[in-house]
């Protein structure tokens, strides 16, 4: 299983290092456990095209069978990366997307298709707001 996961990630990495759809760039992939990608939303006035958003992928040993953990990262400076305003993205960067959930995940997806999905999710957004209440409620309930 572990061998299959790294084999597949290796193949994906070679493909990503070749060509990528517009607005998606590979930032770093130091190993086959954690990658960072930058995405830009090209045609939505809420998110100016000059703003890039940093995504962090964390792959488990059983990667293509299980979904990777994908979150937005906030980097204070050099380069500055913010967490995009979206009703389904919490202020801590967690993304509410069925694709990343164990029910919605399918092993056919890959890093590139996840990036495209998130890109289109942001591109179709019309409300520049955050529903942070939900996750605050979670936190309160957890404590």
């Amino acid at each position: 299983m572990a061998g299959m996961s790294s084999k597949r990630l290796q193949k994906e990495l070679t493909k990503i290092q070749g060509t990528l759809p517009p607005g998606i760039t590979l930032v770093s992939a130091p190993d086959l456990r954690e990658w960072q990608m930058d995405i830009a939303i090209l045609d939505n006035p809420i998110y100016p095209p000059s703003d890039h958003y940093r995504l962090r992928f964390q792959f488990s040993q059983s990667y293509p069978i299980e979904a990777p953990e994908v979150v937005f990262m906030a980097i204070p400076s050099n380069p500055e990366r913010k967490i995009p305003l979206h009703p389904h993205i919490y202020s801590n960067g967690i993304i509410c997307l069925d694709l990343l959930d164990s029910q919605g995940w399918s092993p056919v997806h890959n890093v590139e298709s996840i990036c495209i999905s998130i890109q289109s999710m942001l591109a179709g957004n019309t409300k520049a707001e955050r529903e942070f209440d939900t996750w605050l409620v979670w936190v309160v309930m957890a404590n």
Binding site: M4, K7, R8, K11, P64, V108
Partner: peptide, 12 residues
């Protein structure tokens, strides 16, 4: 090999 011969899960 052709990409049509590739399993979409393991990419082999």
């Amino acid at each position: 090999y052709d990409s049509n011969l590739m399993c979409p899960i393991c990419r082999c």
